[in-house]
């Protein structure tokens, strides 16, 4: 068994998790709740083993670094943090339907990592700029933030779907969307998830700044990646202020959760391909 096999399996197990949660949502198959959770936890453990194995393999080759150093590894780690975040939310808020809106993000990430032809899966050595203890702190904190924003976006979609049907007055407890939690609850979880993400994004930006200072002597150089992370930070800062002080909620916050996540994806992915800068090593 090597790490690429384990991570390959993960892609399909997350697909299966997605299907299970979709079935719970669509067919109101509440009995499948526990199996879906158990299966997702198992899939998560398989992926964890895959990541740890890849870490160990890099030491065997003699490179010795955490599996967080190129696009493939970061996408896989993104999927891992999304599932972790989702499982924590399921455990804390005891709502399983959210899985139908959050787990697909992890599956899509894994599918992209596994099947995209433009992505290099090799374990490659670290270039000098990446040889730092800050690598782990910076990448992990950023991705916890990204994953929280991904789940918040899933919750935002959930809110908008339910809200649209409620405003058409088609929802009752018998209908499809009746299985979704009440709008107020979705709104509350969306907000809490964004708050959590905002804290970690802040830590991620700060660890990045400290790292940049120890590598180049400049903690902030308005490199496109830095700038976009700040733009994302502004968007969530606006969202949180609008909620705390102007009482925004519901549809507007749901849209902002989606809009913020678009900015996250651009920061994470778009910048590497569309703009040039210090983070360009992330593009292979």
């Amino acid at each position: 068994m090597d790490s690429s096999q384990l991570l390959g399996i993960t892609t399909f197990t997350y697909l299966f998790s997605t299907i299970l949660y979709a079935v719970i949502f669509i067919f109101k198959a509440k009995k499948l709740g526990t199996p879906a959770t158990v299966f997702t936890v198992l899939a998560f453990l398989v992926q964890t083993a895959g990541l740890l194995l890849r870490w160990q393999e890099s030491y065997k080759i003699g490179y010795g670094h955490a599996p967080l150093t190129n696009m493939y590894e970061s996408v896989v780690f993104f999927a891992w943090t999304i599932i972790l975040m989702y499982l924590l939310i399921e455990w804390k808020f005891k709502t399983k339907v959210i899985g139908a809106f959050a787990v697909p993000f992890a599956f899509l990430a894994m599918a992209y990592a596994s099947f995209s032809t433009g992505i290099n899966k090799e374990i490659s050595p670290l270039i000098p700029a990446l040889q730092s203890n800050w690598l782990l702190a910076h990448v992990v904190t950023c991705f916890i933030g990204y994953a929280a924003f991904a789940v918040a976006a899933g919750l935002g979609i959930m809110y908008l779907v339910k809200n649209t049907s409620e405003s058409r007055k088609t929802t009752n407890n018998e209908s499809l969307l009746g299985t979704l939690p009440p709008l107020k609850v979705i709104d509350d979880i969306t907000h809490k998830t964004m708050v959590f993400g905002f804290l970690w994004l802040s830590v991620g930006i700060i660890t990045g700044a400290i790292w940049a200072n120890s590598a180049w002597g400049t903690y902030w150089s308005w490199d496109p990646k830095e700038t976009w992370s700040l733009i994302t930070w502004f968007i969530y800062a606006i969202t949180l202020h609008a909620r705390y002080t102007r009482g925004w909620g519901g549809t507007r916050i749901a849209w902002l959760a989606l809009f913020g996540f678009v900015s996250v994806i651009f920061t994470y992915y778009g910048v590497n391909f569309l703009l040039s800068g210090l983070h360009s090593y992330g593009s292979n």
């Binding site: 496109p224 700038t227 976009w228 502004f234 968007i235 606006i238 609008a242 102007r246 703009l275």
Partner: peptide, 15 residues
């Protein structure tokens, strides 16, 4: 909110 919005939007220019 206005200032944060303006900072977010104008920051895009330089990227």
């Amino acid at each position: 909110l206005f200032t944060l919005f303006m900072l977010a939007v104008t920051s895009i220019i330089g990227t």
